[in-house]
Design a binder for these strands. Structure first.
Length: 279
DNA sequence: CGTTCAACCTGGGCGC
DNA sequence: TGCGCCCAGGTTGAAC
């Protein structure tokens, strides 16, 4: 998402619009009228990412400190610099002065995403270390072992805990554990020290590959790049959404279970539970 | 401390 | 074709 928005850096915001009635009050801070007023006339100083959130840095302005436009896409939120799939699910439009792209927008079919304009303190409170752990692209075995090593939680559920490691979603949690042949229900405290290292390495690799392939697009109105192209990472999924299909490593049928209320996919042969008992 | 459930939403798919 | 259910890439808070 952030890569697709690269062209917005250094640009001045001519106007911002939150189409009436299209955003849940609870999902926007401050209230729409104030948010819009604070964005207009500002210049975009930088583009960042904190875990799964897009963070757009605003320069200081008269009477305003540096601020951060934080967009949390959740399930169906997407950023576009071209026309979105539908008009009715557009939640935020930001028009930019001269140049391309002429605008960017936040589109969200289900409307679960959030839009916030925060000062430095607000950013720290919302995206600081108390809320988000080390980023998945750079997480280490030490990070994971320190945060999860004594936990009784199932390792797959734990990888989705953004305070432990930021940026792993439900697709990639299953993919990561398949890479390291660990059963998703394995209790964290049963994971060996060396295996945390392998999980961290797989996390970095799986996420980096997914970014390189521009994300996972499963179905029609699912994730698209900012210029509306589907990603290609789904072609490389080894287990996610492959229930009953042969494991690409051993040909056993991929299984689907529900773990901590989320669909979880794994290979019952490669990821047998007996593989990771401590002794 | 951890799990489960509900809630926030829309829409596609499927069984009947 | 229409209805009722289940499902979906996420997060949060209450109840237990």
């Amino acid at each position: 998402m952030c890569r697709g928005l690269a062209g917005v850096v250094g640009r001045r915001i001519v106007s911002a619009t939150l189409p009436r009635g299209r955003v849940r009050p609870l999902s926007v801070k401050p209230v729409a009228s104030v948010l819009v007023r604070r964005l207009e006339g500002r210049t975009i100083a930088g583009l960042h990412r904190r875990g799964k959130r897009v963070v757009i840095e605003m320069t200081e302005a008269v009477g305003r400190p540096r601020e951060w436009l934080v967009i949390e896409p959740r399930m169906t939120g997407q950023m576009f610099v071209v026309d979105p799939p539908t008009e009715e699910h557009v939640r935020l439009v930001v028009d930019l002065a001269g140049g391309r792209p002429a605008r960017f927008l936040f589109w969200d079919r289900r409307g679960l995403g959030t839009i916030r304009l925060l000062d430095d303190r607000g950013l720290e409170a919302a995206c600081g270390a108390s809320k988000l752990g080390p980023d998945g692209l750079v997480v280490t075995g030490d990070d994971l072992a320190a945060h999860l090593g004594r936990s009784r939680r199932a390792v797959k559920a734990a990888l989705l805990d953004q305070r432990a490691v930021a940026g792993i979603g439900n697709i990639y949690a299953s993919e990561i554990l398949h890479r390291v042949a660990i059963h998703p229900r394995t209790m964290c405290r049963r994971v060996r020290r060396a295996d945390w290292e392998r999980i961290a390495a797989a996390t970095r690799r799986v996420l980096a590959e997914a970014v390189a392939l521009e994300g996972s697009s499963i179905g029609d109105e699912t994730y698209r790049t900012a210029d509306s192209r589907p990603g290609r990472a789904q072609q490389r999924h080894r287990v996610y959404d492959r229930e009953g299909k042969p494991c690409r490593r051993c040909r056993a049928a991929i299984e689907r279970i529900v773990l901590a209320q989320r669909a979880t996919f794994f290979c019952p042969a490669c990821q047998a539970r007996t593989n990771q008992r401590k002794r």
